[in-house]
Simulated scan of single mutants.
Amino acid sequence: EATGDRNAFVTEISRTDDGVNVKVSTTNIGKKIAAKLIEEFGGSYSDSETLVTEDEDGEEVYRVTYAVRLPPYSPGEIIDLHGDDGGPVLVRSVRGNLKGTRLTTGEDYEAGFEEGDAPDARRLGHVEDAEETTLVTVEDERAVQVLDPETYRSKTVARPDYMDPDAESVPVLKSRAGLHVVPEQDDGEG
């Protein structure tokens, strides 16, 4: 639609065990959709040609398939890396390799080349699942006390460097990995 190509349209959309199958009218639009998905969400794509038929002039007609592989994690997810005791990571980007922020310290995390955008990890939740809770006291550079949003008991947790020590309340996520202060989310207003 953006290119003004009148022959570019979606002919069929169906679900398969492998994901969503979208049939489009031209090879060009298929390639552009695959590239745009990768630009937006990370991952990679591959293409393959299949001989379908010959037209009336004897020219071979091919169908081109673009397979898009999206990364297993997306920005905003909070993951716990297997075999890594540095604490949970808030995923910021999955373009190329996974990049994020450690919830315990606020330090940057970047997956190694071999792991790419899919390090071995388990999902703990999403930053949008965080709940506001009262900041009781700042103990030192590395620890604060907050109210547990479920039990309302005071609990000492790691103090990441992105946390405002003068705040009255902070967003926290309670998961299998414990209670962690997450970064304030920019709601896009203002």
Results as ranks from 00 to 15, higher is better:
Tyr109Cys: 04
Gly87Val: 01
Glu131Asp: 12
Gly100Phe: 03
Leu70Tyr: 11
Asp129Cys: 00
His126Trp: 06
Ala2Asp: 10
Gly87His: 02
Gln145Ala: 11
Pro119Thr: 02
Arg69Ile: 11
Glu131Asn: 06
Gly30Tyr: 01
Glu54Asp: 13
Ser93Lys: 08
Thr27Phe: 10
Leu179Gly: 08
Ala67Cys: 03
Ser93Pro: 03
Val52Ser: 11
Val64Lys: 11
Glu40Arg: 11
Gly76Trp: 04
Lys36Gly: 08
Glu59Met: 11
Asp161Tyr: 13
Asp117Lys: 02
Val91Ala: 08
Ile38Thr: 06
Ala67Trp: 03
Asp108Gln: 11
Ala111Trp: 07
Glu189Pro: 04
Asp55Ala: 02
Ser154Cys: 10
Glu39Met: 06
Thr134Asp: 15
Ser154Arg: 14
Val94Gln: 01
Gly19Gln: 05
Glu40Lys: 10
Glu141Tyr: 05
Arg102Ile: 02
Thr27Arg: 15
Lys99Phe: 08
Val172Gly: 02
Ser175Thr: 04
Glu150Met: 08
Tyr73Trp: 15
Leu135Gly: 05
Asp140Ile: 06
Ile78Val: 12
His126Ala: 08
His180Glu: 07
Glu141Val: 06
Thr156Arg: 14
Gly30Lys: 01
Thr156Ala: 12
Glu168Gln: 13
Ala111Arg: 07
Tyr66Gly: 03
Glu141Thr: 10
Phe9Tyr: 14
Gly76Phe: 07
Arg123Phe: 04
Val24Tyr: 09
Arg15Met: 07
Gly19Lys: 00
Glu189Trp: 12
Ala35Phe: 01
Arg102Pro: 00
Glu12Asn: 15
Gly190Leu: 13
Asn28Val: 08
Ala121Asp: 04
Val136Cys: 08
Ala130Arg: 00
